[in-house]
């Protein structure tokens, strides 16, 4: 079961935060097809937010085909997101850790790292790789 959290200072609207957290859990495999999402009541009881916000987030996820509401039962995950397997994640993460260490040794600070990573992502997107 996923447990939602709110970052009230992020400036991202509450419903989008919920959507992102479900997507992320699907990518990481913490949510799998068949899993049940918490009910609107459960979410609002822990976060003190408007239930319509939760319903709106679930509607958005439903529209994307990620989840499906079953009347009287709840909302269930329909399919995962193709974010690679858990093993892929672990392997790639190791590689990234090595890369960060090397960059540090080369004297790059955190901001340099972000800029570099962002630039590579952007280039890759232009070339149609990502």
């Amino acid at each position: 079961m996923i447990e939602f959290q709110l970052d009230r200072s992020s400036g991202v609207s509450t419903y989008l935060q919920l959507v992102h957290q479900v997507r992320q859990a699907l990518r990481l495999g913490t949510l799998r097809p068949g899993d049940k999402l918490p009910t609107a009541r459960e979410v609002v009881e822990s976060l003190a937010i408007n239930p319509n916000t939760v319903l709106k987030a679930y509607r958005e996820l439903e529209r994307e085909g990620l989840v499906a509401g079953k009347p009287g039962l709840g909302t269930f995950v329909e399919r995962g997101l193709p974010g690679g397997t858990l093993a892929d994640h672990t392997r790639l993460r190791r590689g990234l850790e090595t890369w960060v260490r090397q960059a540090r040794e080369a004297g790059l600070d955190e901001e340099d790292l972000r800029t570099l990573f962002g630039a590579v992502l952007a280039d890759a997107a232009r070339e149609g790789v990502a």
């Binding site: 009910t39 009541r41 609002v44 009881e45 976060l47 003190a48 937010i49 408007n50 239930p51 939760v54």
Partner: peptide
């Protein structure tokens, strides 16, 4: 404040 709001929101949901 948080507790009161949670209670109200839960009633609205239910």
């Amino acid at each position: 404040r948080h507790d009161v709001m949670r209670a109200i929101m839960a009633e609205v949901a239910e």
